[in-house]
């Protein structure tokens, strides 16, 4: 198996076989987290830089645990982007980090395309831990992993993504990932939060929740941003919740084996009610658990030099 790229910048450019390689590897690594001694020596002597330009406890912790369970050394750098003109540019920061000879760089950044920029300037494998409103490939992989684990397959399933599609990097990665793995994808939300031309990605578009949930095997509920600049895309959170919130009443209409997912952190009572978030359909905590295995797989597979055999 050969990975085309030494980076993981998004799922858009991965093949199905490459996605499966990541998922299979994660499947082998998941067992390590259930041991008493949760560590293997695999990445001993490797240094992983977590370069986070955006607050994210969950993703950063997940990457850090993943790296440590593989015995890599991890350094967390939380940087601010507020003073772009006064401070150091991303490229300068990255060149400085490169000079300290780490082996992998994980980057979270509020600007779409920042990992691509880094990959052009730095001779290191770059792992995208979420860039602006572009992609969040490890989230996409862990969503795929969780669905495959719970349902045994992804082919032929129907995924419904509910919420702010326009500004969601998770939605983009899930759309690419699930489609490549043979699932049908629906998106649902107010027209103000669905990007024009979304159908060109091969997804079905809904503006009402009920038909979007009808027959869905997996429901991905996206976080609704409470604060946003400019004209609000809907009148109030209360109205959003009424139209698009996943609650007990709506859960009853799902198939019994439908999975409810959420990339976290949840806004209780806005896009999802507590009963739905922790009810029998929910695999939200499985997603978090699987996130570690998936990130271990990504770190492991991108850690090596390329070998010609």
């Amino acid at each position: 198996m050969t990975l085309k790229s030494r980076h993981l910048l998004g799922l858009e450019n991965l093949t199905r076989a490459e996605i499966e390689y990541f998922l299979d590897t994660a499947g082998s690594l998941k067992e390590i987290s259930s041991r008493d001694i949760k560590k293997v020596p695999t990445l001993r002597g490797k240094t992983v830089i977590n370069l986070f330009f955006e607050a994210s406890t969950r993703t950063r912790t997940s990457f850090e645990i993943a790296a440590k369970r593989l015995s890599a050394d991890t350094i967390n750098i939380s940087a601010s982007t507020s003073s772009v003109t006064k401070g150091e540019t991303l490229i300068d920061t990255a060149k400085n980090i490169e000079a300290m000879r780490p082996d992998l760089v994980v980057i979270r950044h509020p600007a779409s395309g920042a990992p691509e920029l880094l990959s052009r300037w730095v001779d290191l494998p770059i792992i995208n831990a979420g860039d602006g409103t572009h992609e969040h490939p490890t989230q996409g992989l862990l969503d795929l992993f969780t669905v495959r684990e719970k349902r045994g397959k992804i082919d032929g399933l129907t995924l419904a993504i509910i919420g702010d599609i326009t500004h969601s990097r998770v939605a983009r990665s899930d759309i690419y990932g699930f489609q490549k793995m043979g699932a049908r994808v629906r998106v649902c939300g107010p027209p103000t939060l669905i990007p024009p031309g979304i159908e060109s990605l091969g997804v079905q578009k809904f503006h009402r929740l009920e038909p979007a949930l009808e027959g869905a095997d997996v429901v991905m509920v996206l976080r609704i941003q409470l604060e946003r600049q400019g004209t609000p895309p809907f009148p109030t959170l209360r109205e959003y919740s009424k139209l698009f919130g996943i609650n007990l009443e709506r859960l009853r209409r799902l198939k019994p084996d439908t999975l409810i997912m959420h990339p976290g952190p949840i806004n209780r009572g806005v896009e999802i009610s507590p009963e739905a978030a922790y009810g029998s359909h929910s695999v939200i905590l499985d997603q978090v658990e699987n996130g570690v295995a998936v990130r271990m797989a990504v770190l492991y597979l991108l850690s090596g030099r390329s070998v010609d055999a």
């Binding site: 858009e12 779409s112 395309g113 860039d131 602006g132 409103t133 572009h134 992609e135 500004h167 990097r169 983009r172 990007p195 024009p196 031309g197 979304i198 060109s200 990605l201 600049q229 400019g230």
Partner: peptide
Amino acid sequence: SRGGQVNEGLASLRTGLAGIP
């Protein structure tokens, strides 16, 4: 257009960057 970076359509859809219609 305010805040927009790329054409609204294919470019904004694929990059996630804010679109200018």
